[in-house]
Every structure is written in C-alpha cells, then in structure tokens.
Design a protein around this nucleic acid. Structure first.
Lengths: 277, 277
DNA sequence: AATTAAGTTCCAAATAATGGAATAATTAGC
DNA sequence: GCTAATTATTCCATTATTTGGAACTTAATT
C-alpha cells in the first residue's frame, strides 16, 4: 500500500481543507459542514464525546446535527457507536469527478506526458489554500483510486501548489497568506511566508516549480501552472518520482515537456470553454 | 473510454440514489441534500431556472440555498452562470474511501479472485435500494478511478444487488420494494417485483446470483453476498465480463470461487470487527 | 448495588429559513 | 442601439427550525 513513488502524503495540515479560520456565512449548512470536516479528517471513527470535545457545542445540538448527517448518509454510525465518513459521499464524488470538464480535457495530455517521462503525472486544482488532486497517471499496478485522487494537500509544499500560487494575482495571495499554517513536513518545507513568496517570484519568472522533497522525504517533482485568462480557474500539472531516480538535473530537463503539457491543456480549454474565463 | 467489459452503466434510474420518495426528517440539511442530488445527478451543469423548475421551490429560497452550497464548495458556479458538482465532494469522498474498513479487509481477496479468473472483480455495498461500488480490480490499463467506484446502481439489475437482496430480511425487502422504479435497461431487466422476488428466492437457495445482461447488453456477471451476522451490513462481490467470453457455463463454474471469496471476507470481518455485527 | 460516565430527549428562547414581490441584470428581437 | 423578454438577484415580515441548558435514560465500572 505504501512504497510507490508518491509525493502526496495525507493532508494532515490544519489549513489543508481551505479556510478553517474564516467562518463562512452559510447558516445551518456551514455548521454541519464543519462537523463533517471534523469527522472525515479524523484518522479513526469518533465517539459522540470525542466530537463533543472537538466541536464545543452543546450536547443536545450536536446530537441532532450528527443524527441528521447520519440519516442523510453523509456519516455512518457504526455498531460500536462511533461516527465515520458515510458512503453517500462516494456517490456524490463519483459524479463530480466523472463530469469535471478540466479533467476530461487534460486526460490525454497527462497520458502523453506520462509516456514521455515514465514517471507519475498529477493534475490538481487550487481551491482556497489547498490543492485538490483530480487525476493521476501511473505506470505499474492498477491505481488505488481514491487513495490520492480527491486528496486536498497544502499549496505551500507541493509542486502543483507553488506553481498555482505563481499565477495567482497578488491581492489573492495576500488574502490567502494569513490563513496558512506552515506545517514542517520535512526539513525542506517552507515555514514562512517570506521564503515562500521569494520562491513564488522565481517560479513566476521561469514558469515551473520544483518540489525538492518539501512534502515527503525522498520525493521530488516538477510542475507547471494552468490558468484561465481571468485567473478564476487555477491548477497545475506535475511529474513526480523518487529522488534517487529523479536528479534535479533531470527535473530541470522535464520542466520543458511539463510546461508544454500545461500549455496544450490551456489552449484546449480556451477552445472548449471559451476564452474569457 | 467505453469498450472495457463493464456491467456498471451510469445509474440513470430514478430510484438509484436510494429513497427519493420518502422525505427524511433532516430539516434544513435534507432540503439542501435534495438539491445537491438534483445537480449531481443531472448530466450537464444546470442554470438557475432549470433547477427552479425541477425543485419547485420559491425563487428566493432556492437562490439562497444554492448560494450556500456554492460557498461551501459542494457545488460550483461556473462562468456561464451554471451550477455543477463541486470539488470539495472529492476531498470528503477520498477520506471516506481510504478509511473504509470493509474495503480494506476485502482488497487482498478481490485481488486473489481476479488472479484466479482474469476478469474484472467488483466490491459493492447495499445502501437503501442502491448498490454503491467500493472497489474494482481490473486487468489491463490503469483504472479510471471514480469512473465506477462510488457509483450507485440499482439493486434489482446487478449481480451484487440481487445477491445482497437475497440475504436481506424479508421485512426489509418489503419496505424497499414499493420505492423501486423498475427501469428496463435491457430486454432481460426485471421489471416487476414478482419476477425479482422469484429470482431472489433461487439466489438465497444457491448462494450466488447471475447478471444475465440485465443492466447492460453484452455484460454478464456472477456474484455472491457478504453480510454481517445481524444483517446490519450487506454487500457483495462479483466477477464481470463480456458475454462473448463468459458463457453461462463458465459463470456457473466461477460461482464457487466467488462464494469462497465472499466467505473469506466475512470470516475476516468477524475477526476484525467482532462477531455481533 | 452504587457510582460514574456516556448518550438521549425535552422545550422555551434565539436564530435562521421561507416565500412573495420588487428590483436588477442579461439576452434576444427589432 | 434601443426595447422587450427572459433570467437572475435582493429584500423583509412571517414562519419554521435550530439552539442550549437541564433533566432523564442507559451502559460501563468499582
């Protein structure tokens, strides 16, 4: 289950799922989503009291909320009286994924990049301060789907994330920075806005980003940003592999095909989805 | 994207996502989930007015509800002013899938069954009147994950679904039947409760179910049920392939290894999750 | 059997959702 | 380029739901 060259560790960072600090004004739904987030982000099923401690809400309220989430299939309530993520989420997600236009457009280009490099290719989009991985092309062994696809990872320590930030308008970056919780995954992880911003400047100049074992030790990658003209949509494509096989020199060479792949995807998006957005 | 031997057509049946008729008492959440269902089950992004017609709710109400869903990332609002499933659903789902204990226990057994038969192996669970596919082991080509995993298909026309029904207590079947909308996918699809119940009786006797091109023309499968002692959990495992390669005689032979696989998974569940449930 | 902890139910007060109509923004027709 | 039609958004008094504290029930522990 482990072993495979893969830069996407579980997103255990607090800021991973976007805006944790800023509470949205979505009324009842917002409160329920916080709960759903809490349970799905835990690494084991939670008992009522565990959730009570984490959510600091009155018992009665929490009880009803969890009951509603369970009744809707968003959470499961197991025989041991613990709450776990529900399977209805899978049904929703499969439709979201199957119909995603960006992914459909990118798929053949990802396959071509994989053939060219022989290493794992990823496609991701920026959502809040997280990168959500939309697709993955791997050589050997059937993909353990869902193991990575759909995962939200922080933007400040992934190739795709930093590439995405490099095309994000400055005001949007400013908005985003205070919400980031820099989590030192490895010794190379950015832990300050200053060092991150400095690198983003370089990335904007060269058009490609490296992950120098910043998220997971022994894993490197090279990525290029993908964006719509008005920057309302931002993502990226990357080639990832183990450091022993991918020297920084090799990654530097691959920057060209990765950027070309990004360009081809952008060109096709303009044709298929119209130029404005 | 098509071609591969695969019995899981998109679940375009009205009853596919469970209890459409029975409105749950989940307050505000329930109303929002109906909307989310509506948008994710459509086969293209919907405009405000489209949803207005489908949801029959007052304009103001609908507008706010959609706004909340978008703000939470459960829906996306594109540049053309249309609503589509949101990517946050993927993040939720990836955690639901990665942590699902049933899937984790079954995985090695599915792989073994695949090696033995050389055909596609599926794992599914019963949720309401739908089968949600949890895993898939395929020979060639990396899995297009999410293309099938997570899909909800009707129980009355899939091997896993009928196998699951064969171990469902009679009172639960009675509850479920009136909510079924029999959709004739092929000439072999069950279109009445009577014929379905008759077959379920046979399946209960033999311990395995066949899909004789009932969901998709040219696709056959053999399946066996998987259940917890108290029947609170019900699912199934199947081997699926194209009819030209899988004669009914061959499927009959495979019934044995499929049932053995189901048994092994159940045995391990009893050990790992305790015998009661 | 008594004690403690965990989980569930209840209901008046606080809060959020509803729905109808008015307004604003697009799009299509001339 | 203007007008009419369609489509989308905002507003706010009314209505319904959620909230939160406490009382109650059930299960686990000594």
């Amino acid at each position: 289950m482990s072993s495979s060259g893969d830069s996407m560790a579980q997103a255990d960072d607090k800021g991973a799922s976007g805006d944790t600090s800023v509470s949205r004004d979505t009324g009842t739904l917002g409160k329920l989503m916080v709960l759903l987030d809490l349970v799905t982000h835990a690494d084991a099923p939670l008992r009522f009291t565990d959730i009570l401690a984490l959510a600091n809400q009155p018992r009665g309220t929490l009880h009803r909320q969890l009951g509603h989430l369970v009744e809707e299939g968003l959470l499961e309530f197991d025989a041991e009286g613990r709450y776990a993520p529900g399977l209805r989420l899978l049904d929703f997600a499969s439709r979201s994924w199957a119909r995603n236009e960006f992914r459909l457009i990118a798929a053949p280009h990802l396959a071509a990049l994989h053939r060219e490099t022989g290493e794992t290719v990823h496609l991701g989009v920026l959502r809040g301060s997280s990168i959500i991985y939309l697709d993955k092309v791997e050589g050997h062994q059937p993909v353990r789907m869902y193991s990575q696809i759909g995962n939200a990872s922080p933007c400040y320590c992934t190739g795709v994330g930093k590439a995405a930030l490099s095309v994000l308008p400055l005001d949007k970056i400013e908005e985003l920075l205070p919400g980031l919780h820099f989590n030192r995954f490895t010794s190379a992880t950015h832990v300050s806005a200053e060092s991150l911003l400095a690198e983003i400047g370089e990335i904007a100049a060269t058009g490609h980003a490296f992950d120098r074992e910043e998220h997971e030790a022994g894993i490197r990658c090279v990525a290029a940003p993908i964006w719509s003209d008005d920057r309302s949509f931002i993502g990226g494509v990357s080639v990832t592999g183990p450091a022993y096989r991918l020297s920084m020199e090799l990654l530097q060479e691959w920057a060209v095909p990765v950027q070309m792949t990004a360009r081809k995807i952008m060109d096709e998006m303009r044709i298929r989805l119209g130029p404005r957005r």
